[in-house]
Nucleic acid binder design. Structure first.
Lengths: 346, 346
DNA sequence: ATCAGTTAGGTGAACGTTCACACCGGGCGG
DNA sequence: CCGCCCGGTGTGAACGTTCACCTAACTGAT
């Protein structure tokens, strides 16, 4: 098997099988218009030479794409990472290749920088639109090649209806559910440690989780405390949450994700407040570790992997109309009650 | 900027600038043999048409690769994920593109399956060789295209010397350091909750962490307890570690990574054993969350990101001899003592 | 003036594939 | 018996680059 020789091309196969290169191409692509005997001869030659098609040449010649580029800003976040895994699995099943391109906020100043990340114009692309670079990339691609892109991100029902290229889950609804749960437990109000919003500035129209949370509080006639902005890292969250855990009036905190929740638990512990006795903490995303913290974290499950898979299917549909539009079949967000939440002690 | 038109090619630029396509190519690739005036004309035409080179065509024509494929088996593990991030950053800095291809153990039966993962023969490849599929891929690529591959994995000094294509860190030494630390604390012996080995079977020659641990115990004349094998997931670890935490004789556990350590802490808590009072727990990798568990996890820091960067540089060196061989400049593993370790209580 | 050496640039053929079309023979309806 | 359609196959031109080679024109020394 170990031939250090040059890889065989379609022409080599053609010569060996005594047919034209085009016939080989037809066999490889499973065209029905080729006689069984010829097909066998070609297949035999393919096996003998160990031929396998060259993806580069295929796309160059304008054949089917068979490749996706994923644009994301932060691979260390659980959500994007899990979605990427979903995309990769779905792509692999169909033998597509996956390219990953990270949008560093530092060198994503102009639209051209984003376009330059694409290996070629028209390359099918999935964008993780959960933060500022992602949102910008989404906008650029939407202008440039709307038919060959799909964005993953939080949405509201309205947005989803208006955007046939959007895939994701209803973060607002999920946050609302978690907030309602805490209210029902008897907490006077719920505070919010927020992840950065997609627009970079806090409290903009794109903070879906914060919106769902605020809406429920308003509907219940509770005071809506100022949400506390945090960065994405645990260290930032730990710093940001200090005033919240120091305030004895605060009895419940909804955190923008499980990492922020872990930081909150740690900060509460150091401030001498017990969880869930003095303080209820609820996370977001059901990150794998969340079931194994002590106490185990109450959180909202999000099936990012399915969303990734859905994004890939939608992309296929958009880039090649012949494939049926996939129905969004991923599970709804679901509150998972574990040990960090309970009634207020007062 | 939003031109839905066909992308400009080198020929379009050539026509507009009134030169030949080859001259455009020279300008794009920064060849010195082109007059300043001509260069300016070409540059202007490039700007006007928004031309950008097509990577596919470039590689097809046998130009510089400018692309890496990363072969990995599990993207949800912290180590590979961080290494991938390092590779991506280094690649992006040089404007290389990164392709990721996941080796599912389920469909990686034959060597051909692995080769099929490559977009083309001779494609520069980095392999995460920390588990069985990874090791097999390493072997296959080594046979097939040794000059265009690099493997990331744990190593011993001997292996490193013998393998110019290997990059990684000395897991054995790091485990030894952690074990020695626990022994110095006064523990009679140290138990080990082990990650799966690269060969799939436990205790084979490739369990670097387990080896370093066992070596120190032997050298200190202590009993070497049977290591407890665990899978990669937290859930598996939680199950596997039960007998260990139930045994009051066990006062110190070295865990194969931080996720296993978290599971161990959880299991200990449920078994009514306090950490570090009754039981010391030490993790591996310094996963971001490890500083924020309660109590905070003592662990061994591993700079996977630097290793990823190093792997990329080494690959460049190997694929294009003109680039100097990089010196492995990543930091040594370092024990980070936090709150889960202490002297035995007895 | 002549000639070798340099410098700036052009020409044509790869690279491995697909696409659009042309071709050929046979069965079938008229 | 003629023309038509159709299954099966071949031909040539893309696709956007780079590579290897060739050609002018200009230099400066003989």
């Amino acid at each position: 098997m170990a031939q250090p020789k040059k890889a065989a091309s379609i022409w080599d196969v053609a010569r060996l099988a005594g047919v034209s290169h085009q016939t080989v191409s037809r066999v490889v692509n499973g065209s029905p218009r080729v006689a069984a005997a010829t097909r066998d001869k070609v297949l035999e030659a393919i096996a003998e030479l160990g031929y396998r098609p060259n993806r580069l040449a295929r796309s160059l010649a304008g054949g089917a794409a068979e490749s996706v580029t994923v644009l994301t800003a932060d691979t260390s976040l659980y959500g994007p990472e899990a979605a990427l895994r979903g995309i990769e699995k779905a792509a692999r099943a169909l033998d597509w290749s996956v390219q990953i391109s990270v949008l560093d906020p530092a060198d994503t100043h102009s639209d051209a920088d984003i376009i330059a990340r694409l290996p070629r114009a028209g390359e099918p692309t999935i964008i993780m639109a959960h933060d500022e670079p992602g949102m910008r990339a989404k906008q650029v691609l939407l202008d440039q090649q709307p038919h060959a892109m799909v964005a993953i991100g939080p949405y509201t029902a309205d947005e989803l209806a208006a955007s046939p290229w959007l895939v994701g889950m209803d973060d607002g609804k999920a946050a609302a559910e978690a907030t309602r749960y805490l209210l029902d437990l008897g907490h006077a109000t719920v505070h919010h440690l927020a992840i950065p919003t997609s627009t970079g500035t806090f409290g903009g129209g794109k903070a879906h989780r914060a919106e769902g949370w605020a809406r429920v509080l308003r509907e219940a006639g509770r005071t809506v405390p100022e949400p506390v902005p945090s960065g994405w890292t645990i260290a930032e969250a730990f710093k940001a949450v200090q005033p919240l855990v120091a305030d004895p009036e605060v009895t419940a905190i909804l955190c923008g994700n499980d990492h922020l929740a872990l930081a909150t638990m740690r900060a509460a512990h150091l401030a001498g407040r017990s969880v869930p006795g003095d303080l209820s903490v609820v996370g977001f995303d059901n990150t794998p570790f969340s079931a194994y913290t002590t106490p185990a974290l109450t959180t909202v499950n999000q099936d990012f992997e399915s969303v990734g898979r859905g994004a890939f299917e939608l992309l296929r549909h958009r880039v090649d109309g012949s494939i049926p539009r996939p129905v969004p079949g991923w599970p709804e967000p679901e509150l998972i009650v574990r040990e960090t939440s309970g009634p207020p002690s007062s």
